[in-house]
Simulated scan of single mutants.
Amino acid sequence: MPLFAGVYAWLGDPRAATVCLLALTGVAASAFLARQPDRIPHARNTLAASVFLLLLSLVWLVGGIASPSVAWLSVCPMVAAAGGSRDRGLRWVAASVLAMLAVYLYERWIGLPAVLVRDLPLLYLVGNTCFILLVALFLVRYERNNDLALARLSEAMATIQRMATLDDLTGLCNRRELLRVLEAERERAERYQLPLSVCVLDIDSFKRVNDTFGHAVGDEVLRHVADTVQALARTTDCFGRYGGEEFLLVLGNTDLPGATELAERVRVAVMNSRAPGPGRPAVTLSIGVARHVHGEPIQRVIEVADRALYTAKSEGRNQVRTGGASVA
């Protein structure tokens, strides 16, 4: 606005220059309102109205419908719609069209003030150049905002995906993701005639850990066990928290002896380790191992491994059991 005030004054129209400077009061008012979050919609309306009245005055003073300011009326809907309100932008479109119609009719029937600008072609050059630059700036800002919105959407989707598939406490796969992976492994095993085994792991006497040391220490123990087992699992295995202090290890392309051997290494590693920090209790695991039988539902192998786990519990804990046969 100060730029165009100077241009109009230089081209011999002090009236248009004064209008440009007066419009700055509306811009200042909108900036003041924008500092208060609850008044941001009022700030947008004030800014759009200030720009609209400025442009309508310039159209009135400098050529009517033939004025270079006519194209600038599209700025009002752009300002209004920039706040995310399509309806508000459409209302300003309607207001601009009606205003142009009113100026045209008034010019035809009554007549407008005489144009004082000495060089209208130069005014058109300056005005149209600035308008093109403004549109370019608006498009760049729009694309930037669009890219930021897409980036935030991608982050939100990734967060939702993590929440849907990972356990908050341990960072392992959660029950839903474990069952999804297990079903996918079952389909692969049956399609290519590959072995598939499952280990169900349970921390022994975990309730006593919570009751004696508190739930915060219990959480540390859960994370420690999760990290210890995860370090021994292969990259092709899927290890996750099945619920409470119970974990599930899905071993694709692994027969029962191989799964049992890995389960024993896991049991020994946990028994010989301790969660970091003073006063952390030593814990042990009971593990049940089962092999999937082709043609049976996937829940069946979990039930078999669960029964083997309870056998290990009933026979003294800190053991691996496979179909009821002792391994440790």
Score class of each variant (00 low, 15 high):
131 F>A: 11
132 I>R: 03
132 I>D: 09
133 L>V: 10
133 L>Q: 04
133 L>R: 02
134 L>H: 09
134 L>C: 09
135 V>M: 14
135 V>Q: 03
135 V>T: 07
136 A>W: 03
136 A>Y: 14
137 L>K: 14
138 F>R: 02
138 F>K: 09
139 L>C: 08
140 V>E: 06
140 V>Y: 13
140 V>M: 08
141 R>Y: 15
141 R>A: 11
142 Y>H: 12
142 Y>R: 06
142 Y>F: 14
143 E>R: 08
144 R>M: 13
144 R>E: 09
144 R>D: 15
145 N>Y: 04
145 N>V: 02
145 N>G: 10
145 N>I: 09
145 N>M: 10
146 N>H: 13
147 D>R: 11
147 D>P: 00
147 D>K: 14
147 D>L: 15
148 L>S: 12
148 L>R: 12
149 A>R: 04
149 A>P: 00
151 A>Q: 11
151 A>C: 04
152 R>Q: 10
152 R>M: 12
152 R>V: 07
152 R>S: 12
153 L>T: 00
154 S>F: 14
155 E>S: 09
155 E>C: 15
155 E>G: 14
155 E>Q: 11
156 A>W: 13
156 A>N: 06
156 A>H: 15
157 M>E: 09
157 M>H: 10
157 M>Y: 04
157 M>N: 13
158 A>H: 11
159 T>D: 10
159 T>W: 05
160 I>V: 10
160 I>N: 04
161 Q>G: 06
161 Q>I: 05
162 R>A: 11
162 R>T: 09
163 M>L: 07
164 A>T: 08
164 A>I: 14
165 T>S: 15
165 T>P: 04
166 L>Y: 11
166 L>W: 12
167 D>L: 08
167 D>R: 03
167 D>V: 07
167 D>Y: 02
167 D>F: 03
168 D>H: 14
168 D>A: 13
169 L>T: 04
170 T>F: 01
170 T>S: 08
170 T>Y: 03
170 T>L: 01
170 T>C: 05
171 G>S: 02
171 G>Y: 02
172 L>C: 03
174 N>S: 09
176 R>G: 15
177 E>C: 10
177 E>T: 07
177 E>H: 15
180 R>E: 09
180 R>F: 14
180 R>V: 09
180 R>S: 08
180 R>N: 12
180 R>T: 09
181 V>P: 00
181 V>R: 03
181 V>S: 04
181 V>L: 08
182 L>I: 09
182 L>E: 13
182 L>N: 05
183 E>D: 13
184 A>S: 07
184 A>F: 08
184 A>C: 11
186 R>M: 07
186 R>D: 02
186 R>N: 05
186 R>V: 12
187 E>M: 07
187 E>L: 11
188 R>P: 06
188 R>Y: 07
188 R>N: 14
189 A>Y: 11
189 A>K: 03
189 A>N: 05
190 E>L: 08
190 E>T: 11
191 R>A: 14
191 R>K: 13
191 R>M: 15
191 R>T: 07
193 Q>V: 13
193 Q>H: 13
194 L>T: 06
194 L>M: 13
194 L>Y: 05
194 L>G: 02
195 P>N: 10
195 P>S: 10
196 L>M: 06
196 L>Q: 01
197 S>G: 10
197 S>A: 15
197 S>T: 08
198 V>Q: 00
199 C>G: 12
199 C>W: 00
199 C>F: 02
199 C>A: 08
199 C>D: 04
200 V>T: 03
200 V>P: 00
200 V>D: 00
200 V>S: 01
201 L>Y: 06
201 L>M: 12
